[in-house]
Nucleic acid binder design. Structure first.
Lengths: 247, 247
DNA sequence: TTCTTCATCTCGAAA
DNA sequence: TTTCGAGGTGAAGAA
C-alpha cells in the first residue's frame, strides 16, 4: 500500500460546518467510501410505512451500496434505515445538512436533517472474506442425510427440496413400510408455525399422490413448545429431537 | 452546554496504536459512550450457531447497552453482532486489539481481532425522542374497529386479541346472521403462512365453542398471493382487501 | 423466564 | 420481478 492509499483510508472532520460535512459526504460517495455522520438530527421516513423521529444524537451510516442506517445509543436494530439500492444525496437545506436517500419499488425515502454535525468520516474499505457459518438448517439436513435413522429406523431419504404445490419439502423419503414421509427441519426450538408449515406440505403431497397411501409428517428440531406438540398430535404428525451439531 | 461537555461529545483517534485504541474503548465504556472502531480485523462467533470471518476492513460499533455490530461495506445487516446485554471487553492479545463480548442465556461470545486500527471514536449521546410509526398492523386493526363494514356489511367486532388455545385472535366478532367470525390482520401482502395462522385460530375457536355453529375465517390484508388464495379456498376462509392507511 | 407474533423485517434462491 | 422460507432473525407483549 502506498502512503497515498494509507492517507486515503480514513478521512475525518470534527465539528465541521454543514457545507464542509456535505462536501465530505459527496466526495466520499463518489469514491465508493462508507460514510458515517454523527450529530443531532431528526429523521423522516415515508414508504412501506411512515415514521418521524424528533431531535436527538444519532450515528448515521451510509454504505456505498445504498444502505442507510440510523442508530441511537440503544438496541441492536437501527431506529431508521433504508435498504441497499438507494441513492444517497447530501444537501444544505434551511442551513442544515440534509441527507436524503430514496429508492423505487417500493417508493421509499428517508430524510435525516442535522442541526449540528459533531463528526463526519469516510472509510475506504476492502473486504474479500466471506462469512462461514455452521449450525444452520443446512447442517441439520446433512446430518439427517448422513444418518437417516435419526428420523427413525428404516427411514430412507429419496429427495431434498422436493417441490410440491405448497412449496419445497426439506427431506422427502419413505419409512420401513414404504410409506411416504415428509420431513420438515428446523435449527431451533419450534412453535405452532412450523407445524402449520409441515402440515401444508403433507397435505400437498397427499394430493400430489392422489391419496393412494397415507403420507406421514415428521418435524425434526431440537425441541417443541407445548402448543406445537399439541398441534402435532391433532394433525397426526411426529416429532424427532435433533440439533444441527449433534447435541 | 459547557465547553467541557462540548469537548467530551466526540473523541477520535486516527491510526492509534493498539494500546491507545484499547484505552479509548475502555474509558468510553466507563463513561457510557457509544464506541466505533474501524480497521482490518477478523471475527469469531460462538453461540446459537458459530461463524468465522477472515481478515477485512470493517466498522465495529459498541453500544453502552452491550450491543455489538460489525458492518462490512455491503448490506443492511451486520455481518456479525451481539445483542444488548452483553459485557464488552477490550484487551491486547498477541499484539492485536481484541474486542470481546459475551452473554449468557444463551451462552454466546464474539471476538473481534484487529490487526490494524484506522480509527477509534467515542460518542456521548443524548436522545429523548421516541420514534412514532404509522402504517402498522395496529393501525389496520383500528381501521377495522372504526369501520367494521370493511370486513363485510353487518360485521360486529366483539373482542380484540381474544385468547384461544391456539393463540390470540386479532379481531373476534359475528356476522349479520350472528355467526362467529375470526379475523386475521396483516399490514402487507400475505402468503400461505398467514392462511395457516388464520386456520389454526378458526379451528381453535370451533373447539372452544364445541362446534355449536360454523365459525368463519376472514383474512384482511392489502393483497394475497396465488398460493395463499388457493389455500383460503381449500380451507373455506374469506379474504378482504384493506391497507393500514386506507388504500 | 418462555411463548407467540409482528416487522418499513432482511436475505437468498428459484420460478 | 415476485414468491417463499430461513435467520445466530430482533423486539414487544403476555402468561
Amino acid at each position: 500500500m502506498t502512503a497515498s492509499d494509507q492517507r486515503r483510508r480514513v478521512e475525518t472532520e470534527l465539528r465541521p460546518g454543514h457545507d464542509a460535512a456535505r462536501e465530505v459526504v459527496a466526495t466520499a460517495r463518489e469514491r465508493g467510501d462508507l460514510v458515517t455522520v454523527f450529530g443531532r438530527c431528526t429523521v423522516e421516513y415515508e414508504g412501506r410505512a411512515s415514521s418521524y423521529l424528533g431531535p436527538g444524537d444519532r450515528h448515521v451510516m451510509l454504505k456505498p451500496d445504498g444502505t442507510v442506517l440510523v442508530h441511537t445509543d440503544e438496541g441492536q436494530q437501527p431506529v431508521n434505515w433504508q435498504p441497499p439500492g438507494c441513492t444517497h444525496d447530501a444537501t444544505l437545506a434551511n442551513g442544515q445538512l440534509e441527507v436524503r436517500s430514496e429508492r423505487t419499488t417500493p417508493e421509499e425515502s428517508i430524510v435525516v436533517s442535522f442541526e449540528r454535525v459533531q463528526q463526519v468520516s469516510a472509510f475506504a474499505m476492502e473486504d474479500s472474506s466471506e462469512l462461514s457459518v455452521s449450525g444452520t438448517e443446512a447442517d441439520l439436513k446433512q446430518r439427517i442425510l448422513d444418518e437417516p435413522d435419526l428420523v427413525e429406523p428404516g427411514f430412507t431419504p429419496l429427495a431434498t427440496e422436493r417441490q410440491t404445490p405448497a412449496g419445497a419439502v426439506d427431506v422427502y423419503g419413505e419409512d420401513a413400510e414404504g410409506r411416504v414421509v415428509v420431513v420438515e427441519l428446523k435449527r431451533r426450538r419450534v412453535g405452532p408455525d412450523a407445524v402449520g408449515q409441515l402440515d401444508r406440505y403433507v397435505q400437498a403431497v397427499e394430493r400430489d399422490l392422489h391419496a393412494e397411501s397415507e403420507v406421514r409428517g415428521v418435524l425434526v428440531a431440537p425441541s417443541v413448545t407445548d402448543r406445537a406438540r399439541t398441534l402435532l398430535g391433532e394433525k397426526g404428525h411426529g416429532f424427532v429431537a435433533a440439533t444441527p451439531d449433534g447435541e
